[in-house]
Simulated scan of single mutants.
Amino acid sequence: MTDQLAVVTVTYSSGDYLKSFLDTLALATEAAPRVVIADNGSDDGAPEAAERDYDRVTLVHTGANLGYGGAINRAVAEIDPAVEFIVVANPDVAWGPGSLDELLAAAARWPQAGSLGPLIREPDGSVYPSARQVPRLVAGTGHAVLGAVWKNNPFTRAYLDADRADLERPVGWLSGSCLLLRRTAFDEIDGFDSRYFMYMEDVDLGDRLGKAGWQNVFVPTAEILHTKGHAASKNPELMLPAHHRSAYRFQADRNPGALRAPLRWALRAGLAVRSRVAVKAARRELNRRQS
């Protein structure tokens, strides 16, 4: 199984999260997979310590901050193409016992699965809606506009698809915080689109896998814990605009041509306004917590 599986992650001053990631990984699978860390410019010494202290860990310095998808592509390039499955995961993931073996077992049940994702729990124990539908233009706009003020609106409810969190099933896309990827599928679509510096790269990946004939399968019997958004919550002025730029890129790519230019202009303007509002709200909340 060691030759069947490899793990990749991306660091950017991830601190103690990386140690927890590696310590709990030993509980996730009976294999001893190789781990490749793509470092985007950490200054905390954690990636170097991981390579020194853990067997089968390889550190790759990307030479710049490539973003998440670009760095994952760089890490995957270090792995022998004969390795059948690649695990892509954030360094702030803590693995549940047997979680990767559960994903591998599901991959055998779903031979057309290009990606498989676990049930993701938040630090408070709640379930994060990690298995979602692809946001098409109308539904995505409805979710973006109404999601913050009317959480149970039909667009958001359909997009999150949260009512079936206990059912193993194909979905539109899976959270990139933890994915088991079939290498042939990943290579077929040329991996992550590195134009997405941060956010939406997983939505784009799942959508392109689906269009190429692969499935994205949610596996709730595999569980992980994800300390979601610790960087985003501390840097809303950087992270939230990046999220909105990626949302625009996703929809613009899927609505090309001169006839749809007015749609793209309206979408860009609307997302810019929404981004400014979101940053102000996040900053107020951050100041409230700090005080």
Rank of each mutant, 00 (worst) to 15 (best):
W95F: 15
P111L: 00
R288Q: 13
I224H: 13
G125W: 05
V134W: 00
N216M: 09
V93L: 03
A247F: 07
L259K: 07
S126R: 10
L267E: 12
Y17E: 06
R264H: 04
D92G: 04
R121W: 02
D16P: 11
I120K: 14
A222C: 10
L59F: 03
R245M: 12
A247L: 12
W265I: 09
W173C: 05
V219W: 12
L27G: 01
A46D: 06
R121E: 09
S99T: 02
T58G: 00
R183A: 08
A49H: 13
E51M: 13
W110L: 10
G213E: 06
G213R: 08
R264D: 04
Y54F: 15
T227W: 14
S42W: 02
P111D: 01
N255C: 08
A107W: 08
P170L: 05
D202E: 13
D253G: 08
R132V: 06
Y199A: 14
T62E: 01
D3W: 02
A165K: 01
N216Y: 14
R284L: 15
G176K: 07
L137H: 11
A64D: 13
E51C: 12
A26G: 00
E48K: 11
A261I: 03
R109H: 05
G191W: 11
Y196I: 09
E223W: 02
G45H: 01
S42N: 02
